[in-house]
Design a binder for these strands. Structure first.
Length: 213
DNA sequence: ACTAGGATGCCCT
DNA sequence: GGGCATCCTAGTA
């Protein structure tokens, strides 16, 4: 039987828990992105947890900087970073203020406003690829550094909100090492995804880049 | 199917 | 100046 997703925004308390508890609980939740052209909605299918200052894979590992300062603030806010010279990736800050935990939103299914995302995702060969990967997700939702620090608990008129949705049953949650994270940061199974979901991105191990000439 | 390499700019040492 | 929580295209098969 089909259960309609719950459209109540998640309260700040939801994010004020250890990041490893919040991350799997985000699967199946609905991210609403209000754009000038209309709303886009995405059902989360893949995330990764970043623990903060004690985590070598985290941007917070070397302490607070201008770029990552939102991670050190209160939970329920968005941390957006720019990488590889052209992409943005989006995180939700979790845990108590000062802990710098965050969940990277890696993939999802566009459930509303797909026509608005296709204009920005011209290389997508089908709708499953619209948000299959963290930079693709941010591109589809038109998320960049302007949204760094946005509050996802401020209500459904805000630029970004997370709704209760229909959380993925724990028996359907899969875990594995984080994509693109090497060294000591790769030992933990801190990537979470929904089993057998075609919008989940392929795993890629970390590979050091060779220097260009 | 899978692999390799280039794109491109900001952050931090 | 090295590295980056990535994506895309072209190549081989």
């Amino acid at each position: 039987m089909i259960v309609a997703p719950d459209r109540t925004p998640l309260p700040r308390d939801f994010f004020d828990r250890p990041v490893l508890e919040v991350a799997p609980d985000l699967l199946g939740r609905i991210l609403v992105r209000n754009t000038p052209d209309g709303p886009i909605e995405l059902r989360l299918t893949e995330v990764e947890a970043y623990e903060g200052e004690a985590d070598p894979g985290s941007h917070a590992y070397r302490g607070r900087t201008a770029r990552n300062s939102v991670m050190f603030g209160p939970p329920g806010y968005v941390y957006v970073y720019f990488t590889y010279g052209m992409w943005h990736c989006m995180n939700l800050v979790c845990g108590p203020e000062g802990k710098a935990g965050a969940v990277l939103l890696r993939a999802g299914e566009i459930t509303e406003g797909a026509e608005l995302t296709r204009e920005r995702r011209l290389s997508a060969r089908n709708d499953k690829e619209l948000a299959k990967g963290p930079a693709r997700l941010a591109t589809a939702l038109d998320v960049d550094r302007r949204l760094d620090g946005a509050d996802v608990c401020a209500g459904t008129d805000a630029p970004l909100t997370v709704l209760t949705g229909a959380p993925t049953d724990p028996s359907q949650v899969r875990t594995g090492p984080r994509t693109g994270v090497g060294g000591e940061g790769s030992v933990h199974p801190w990537r979470f995804w929904t089993a057998n979901d075609p919008t989940v991105s392929p795993y890629r191990a970390h590979s050091p880049r060779r220097r260009r000439t």
